[in-house]
Amino acid sequence: MTGPAEVRCMLMRGGTSKGAYFLAEDLPADEAARDDLLLRVMGSPDPRQIDGLGGAHPLTSKVAVVSRSADPQADVDYLFLQVAVDRPEVTDRQNCGNILAGVGPFAVERGLVAAGDDETVVRIRMLNTGELAVASFPTPGGRVDYTGGAEISGVPGSAAPVVIEFPRGGSPLLPTGRVRDVVVGTEVTCVDNGMPTVLIPATAVGISGHESPKDLEEDLALADRLREIRLEAGRLMGLGDVESATVPKLSLLAPPKNGGAVTTRTFIPVRCHTSIGVLGAASVAAGLLLPGGVGEGIGELPARGDRMRIEHPAGFLDIETSVDPGSAEVAPAVRRTAVVRTARKILDGTVFPRSAGTAPIPPRPQGGQR
């Protein structure tokens, strides 16, 4: 396939991820041509991504496609695309709350939304799920200011805060309809508060849950066990065959060590996350608040308020979540979710994709946009 020889692009850090941000109008309208172009932009398939923008890890091989929204409840539309590192694959079957942190500032930078004098609020429709998010960030003098005192674990230094609130969505919090399921002989809680996630007590799969991501990735027996759980849980959650999908995520739960509510080790889906995704953390927090869930007896819930600290390998993520536990007649539901992230513009200019090759692009995995 062929495509443009050069493309306008902004490289941004969003939360604890990094990705290439594009206006939809700057990319081919045809999905196959777009995906082919993005593979060449990011340097995939290649474990080093040496010939593109990718950073040889799923957390740095991400793409945001942004456009004005036709939805009266939103200002812009955001499509997240995960570009595989070592495979010729681009998928939209998951969302990304970290890359989401950069969407509002990018929309202002590209003129899709007018900046306020002090602060700008951008309503974002997340096309992967159809749900909404509202991002607020400083724009003194009508310009995005990336400097500030907000710090997040996994990112050195500080930057301006981006407050993201997630209005209550339409998807069921418990995709299986049950607070506990037994999957491959393991009790789990399947939850979706923006990211389909399977919560698993770490001890149930033979680990403490405090191991390093590297050690966990090298545990082949653990990898086989988690794969079996993920495939079966995916079917139970209505996601179909998830063999080639990046959802559901698996979050292993262990007691906190540094004053938080819980310690997590999250798989995305094979690599162990060096921190935790925003929407994954939102799902963990909501799951911990469910009476009867597998987090009972593991997590230490805050005595007051909605703010919960989720510990992960690089530190912690603070998230505010409240849940209506429901009743025999009414299913549990999330009342509110909000998180503070940061974002930073790294580079704005033109990217030159490598020359088009002859390797075919595999068909997009079926099963819906998640």
Rank of each mutant, 00 (worst) to 15 (best):
residue 260 G to M: 07
residue 287 G to R: 04
residue 279 L to T: 15
residue 288 L to D: 12
residue 200 I to E: 10
residue 212 S to P: 05
residue 287 G to Y: 08
residue 234 G to A: 04
residue 260 G to R: 03
residue 250 L to H: 06
residue 222 L to I: 01
residue 237 M to P: 03
residue 237 M to I: 04
residue 247 V to S: 09
residue 242 V to Y: 01
residue 274 T to A: 04
residue 263 T to Y: 14
residue 219 D to W: 02
residue 284 V to L: 11
residue 232 E to C: 02
residue 202 A to W: 04
residue 214 K to H: 13
residue 204 A to W: 13
residue 277 G to F: 06
residue 249 K to W: 04
residue 219 D to M: 01
residue 253 L to H: 06
residue 290 L to V: 10
residue 276 I to H: 13
residue 271 R to H: 14
residue 191 V to D: 01
residue 263 T to E: 15
residue 266 T to S: 14
residue 218 E to A: 15
residue 272 C to I: 05
residue 251 S to F: 05
residue 288 L to N: 11
residue 199 L to P: 01
residue 286 A to M: 10
residue 260 G to Y: 05
residue 201 P to H: 12
residue 271 R to Y: 11
residue 220 L to G: 00
residue 213 P to Y: 03
residue 295 G to L: 13
residue 241 D to K: 02
residue 263 T to G: 09
residue 252 L to C: 06
residue 265 R to H: 04
residue 250 L to K: 06
residue 243 E to F: 11
residue 196 P to I: 00
residue 294 V to W: 12
residue 249 K to P: 02
residue 190 C to Y: 08
residue 203 T to G: 14
residue 238 G to K: 01
residue 292 G to E: 14
residue 294 V to I: 11
residue 282 A to S: 15
residue 224 D to H: 07
residue 291 P to L: 03
residue 191 V to H: 03
residue 217 E to W: 00
residue 212 S to Q: 12
residue 273 H to D: 04
residue 233 A to H: 02
residue 245 A to K: 15
residue 214 K to S: 13
residue 262 V to S: 09
residue 252 L to R: 05
residue 220 L to I: 07
residue 257 K to I: 08
residue 202 A to S: 14
residue 263 T to K: 07
residue 226 L to P: 00
residue 246 T to N: 13
